[in-house]
Simulated scan of single mutants.
Amino acid sequence: MNFQEGITFIKNLPKSTSTLHGNLLKQGDLKILYPGYKGDSDYKIEMINGSVPTHYDICFEIYNSVDSSNYNSYIEFIEDVYNYGLNSTNNLNDDLKNLIYWVSLQEDINYPPPKKGRALAFCRYYEAILAKKGNLSLDFLKSRCNNHGRGVPALLKISDAPTFYK
């Protein structure tokens, strides 16, 4: 499912009782609770253990998964998931792909164009890879993830950044 298909899927959930069990849809280790805080087109995400994943949690998982041998592979992975969603053929980390997709799809639904939608989240995921390389600290990255109400953080000056980081 790419991001446009995901938006259509979520918006059609009320009509698709065969997909829902109550107001719960399971996707791997995630529970998608419907509807969300922002209305019928929104949803809430929980891990099976009941925790709610944040963008920083995803960044921290990316940071911990990256090392010098797979740095470029993770950049390719993030860019491929951004472009193709769950249809991405890059299977570097399928659990992470599923988590990134469902969390960032919510951003596309809640903040459609001309707002940044999923691109803002993917910028932070890319910065998690940069943090592992030493380009920024985890504390700085955390402040960029948790900047609610302070506007969109300015992008870092990176010459060979992925297409969404512009």
Results as ranks from 00 to 15, higher is better:
163 T>A: 15
161 A>M: 09
6 G>K: 01
122 F>T: 00
110 N>W: 02
54 T>C: 03
165 Y>T: 02
101 Y>L: 08
97 K>C: 08
105 L>T: 01
126 Y>K: 08
112 P>W: 01
94 D>N: 14
22 G>T: 08
7 I>W: 00
43 Y>V: 00
73 S>Y: 10
51 S>D: 15
9 F>P: 02
96 L>Q: 03
128 A>L: 08
137 S>V: 13
160 D>R: 10
92 L>Y: 08
81 V>C: 05
13 L>E: 02
140 F>H: 11
77 F>D: 01
22 G>Y: 11
33 L>E: 04
21 H>R: 14
160 D>G: 07
17 T>W: 13
39 G>F: 01
53 P>A: 01
89 T>Q: 15
157 K>A: 14
51 S>T: 13
141 L>Y: 02
85 G>L: 03
108 D>P: 03
138 L>M: 14
68 S>P: 07
125 Y>N: 01
6 G>Y: 02
31 K>M: 10
27 Q>D: 04
59 C>D: 03
143 S>F: 10
40 D>K: 02
39 G>R: 00
77 F>M: 09
50 G>N: 09
113 P>L: 13
29 D>K: 15
139 D>Q: 12
56 Y>N: 01
61 E>T: 08
88 S>T: 10
37 Y>S: 10
109 I>N: 01
68 S>L: 14
38 K>D: 01
45 I>A: 01
75 I>L: 13
124 R>V: 07
108 D>H: 02
38 K>Q: 09
111 Y>P: 00
84 Y>D: 03
84 Y>S: 08
76 E>Q: 15
77 F>G: 00
31 K>N: 11
